[in-house]
């Protein structure tokens, strides 16, 4: 059907690896932040909320450039991580994962937050009267009830991460086999004289992945409603 070349496979697999790692690493942070925003009132909450949503509205090239300034070899955090922990982001696939994680974070957090907000707090009270310490309440009641929302957030974040382009190419460039994801491969191919066919194949792959993720997110959202009704 689709005659995908080894070079295209490299880009597809790299995209998947980048998106999977970005989503898995972002998820615990996403859950913690979603819980904080859903449940706690604190000074500077609206500022934090705005910062989380910033990558959604900022031009991706700006986010990428800021990442380069911060996490680049000479960046404040980047230099520290490289010198002390040996972790390098600049021009590596890990940097692509970082860029994708940050760009997809708002989409990942939102369903998680909504599902935590939808939980009946009286169930958590009931758990407490049965002897559950607050952290046990979180893991045995809050998180299981929010799970469909958590999964929906992960799926959406994954879909966004796999399609990320602007911040990634700005931060880690477009190196085949290291940082060239589906998006940047398409970008290169449509600038090459006879790259149309290859670009077309990757476009189809992108559409399939994105559609699949949206359908999965929708399915998880439906499950969430059923679960909260106890069926």
């Amino acid at each position: 059907m689709l005659d995908i070349s080894p070079a295209e496979w490299t880009a597809i697999l790299l995209s998947l690896r980048v998106a999977v790692i970005a989503t898995l690493v972002a998820t615990p942070f996403g859950i913690a932040l979603a819980w904080l925003l859903a449940r706690k009132d604190f000074w500077g909450k609206s500022v934090l909320d705005a910062i989380v949503h910033l990558p959604l509205v900022l031009p991706p090239v700006v986010t990428g450039y800021l990442l380069l300034l911060t996490f680049g070899r000479r960046g404040l955090v980047g230099a520290f991580l490289a010198d002390h922990l040996g972790i390098v982001f600049a021009f590596r696939w890990t940097g692509a994962a970082l860029a994708c994680g940050i760009m997809s974070f708002p989409l990942l957090v939102r369903p998680m937050r909504l599902s935590i907000e939808a939980i009946d707090r009286r169930l958590e009270q009931a758990a407490e009267t049965l002897g559950a310490a607050p952290w046990k309440v979180f893991f045995t009641v809050t998180l299981p009830l929010a799970l469909p929302g958590v999964l929906a957030g992960m799926v959406l974040g994954f879909a966004k991460a796999i399609g990320e382009f602007g911040a990634t190419i700005t931060f880690v460039s477009n190196i085949p086999g290291e940082t060239q994801t589906i998006s940047s491969a398409i970008y290169s191919l449509i600038q090459t004289p006879d790259g149309d066919a290859a670009a077309g194949r990757l476009v189809i792959v992108s559409v399939v992945l994105a559609l699949g993720a949206l359908i999965a997110a929708e399915w998880f959202a439906r499950r969430a409603t059923q679960r909260l009704h106890g069926n």
Partner: peptide, 30 residues
């Protein structure tokens, strides 16, 4: 959670994600 009380609410408040057996076992586990 440290008072060792039991509380039956007007609206039962059973955990919807657990079956009856798991609901019954919840306090013992916690």
């Amino acid at each position: 959670w440290r008072r060792r009380i039991g509380y039956v609410f007007q609206d039962a408040r059973l955990f919807p994600h657990l079956n009856v057996a798991q609901n019954l076992d919840y306090g013992r586990r916690m």
